[in-house]
Computed example of a mutant assay.
Amino acid sequence: MIRHLVLFKLNEGVERDDPRVVAGDRAFRELEGQVPELEFWECAWNITDRPIAYDYAINSAVADEDALKRYIEHPAHQAAAGQWREFATWVIADYPF
């Protein structure tokens, strides 16, 4: 199994209630049923407010590196991630578990 973690930081001046952000959150929440490679999926807003904290997180798992590649290339994932490019930056970690 491969764990796929993504932490998002909203760009300066962008708030969670921005319509683009609301739509981006919805798009990620809907991925669970759209991408067959996902063995596990959760996403949520960070509940802490610390200077080093990111705003939003995705915690997911796929079977192997081939499944990770298919997930990343899946049109629904590409569409959801594309929305976030407009208002956030992110970091990613993929590791076996």
Rank of each mutant, 00 (worst) to 15 (best):
A63K: 08
R50H: 09
D66K: 12
A27D: 12
F40E: 12
K69C: 03
Q34F: 08
A44H: 14
L31I: 01
E37W: 05
W45Q: 13
V35D: 04
F40M: 08
D64V: 05
C43R: 01
L68C: 09
T48R: 14
D64K: 06
P51H: 06
I52S: 03
I58K: 08
G24I: 02
R50P: 01
W45R: 10
D66Y: 06
V62N: 03
A23N: 02
A67R: 11
E32T: 00
F28V: 12
W41H: 09
I52E: 08
Y56M: 03
Y56G: 07
E37H: 06
D49H: 11
W41A: 00
T48A: 10
I52H: 11
F40D: 07
F40A: 12
P36I: 03
A57T: 10
D64T: 11
A53N: 15
L38H: 08
D64L: 07
A57P: 07
I47S: 08
Q34Y: 07
I58R: 03
L38S: 04
I47V: 14
R70Y: 02
Y56E: 08
W45D: 11
R70P: 12
W45K: 06
Y56W: 14
D64G: 03
I47G: 05
I47L: 14
G33C: 04
R50G: 04
E37P: 05
E39V: 13
F28Y: 15
Y71T: 03
R29S: 13
E32P: 03
E30N: 06
Q34L: 15
T48E: 13
A23P: 00
L68E: 06
A67S: 15
A44C: 12
A44K: 11
L68T: 01
I58W: 07
T48S: 14
F40H: 15
K69T: 15
A67G: 11
I47A: 12
A57Q: 08
T48L: 13
A53T: 14
F40I: 05
G33I: 05
A27P: 07
R26F: 01
R70Q: 14
P51R: 01
Y56C: 04
C43I: 03
P51D: 10
L31A: 10
R29Y: 09
F28A: 09
D66I: 10
S60T: 14
R70S: 14
I47Y: 10
N46G: 00
I52C: 00
N59K: 09
R50Y: 05
D49A: 12
F28M: 15
D49M: 04
A44R: 12
A63L: 02
I52W: 05
A57W: 01
S60R: 02
E39I: 09
P51L: 04
I52Y: 05
F28L: 15
S60P: 04
R70F: 08
T48P: 00
R29G: 11
L31Y: 07
V62M: 04
I47C: 08
A63H: 01
D66P: 06
E37M: 11
D64E: 06
W41I: 02
L38P: 06
E39T: 02
E30A: 15
N59I: 15
N46C: 05
I52P: 01
L38M: 13
R26G: 03
L38Q: 12
A23W: 00
I47R: 09
A61M: 15
D55V: 10
P51Y: 07
E39G: 00
Y71I: 08
Y71K: 07
G24M: 04
V35A: 04
E42C: 05
A44Y: 13
L31T: 04
Q34N: 04
L31G: 03
Q34T: 02
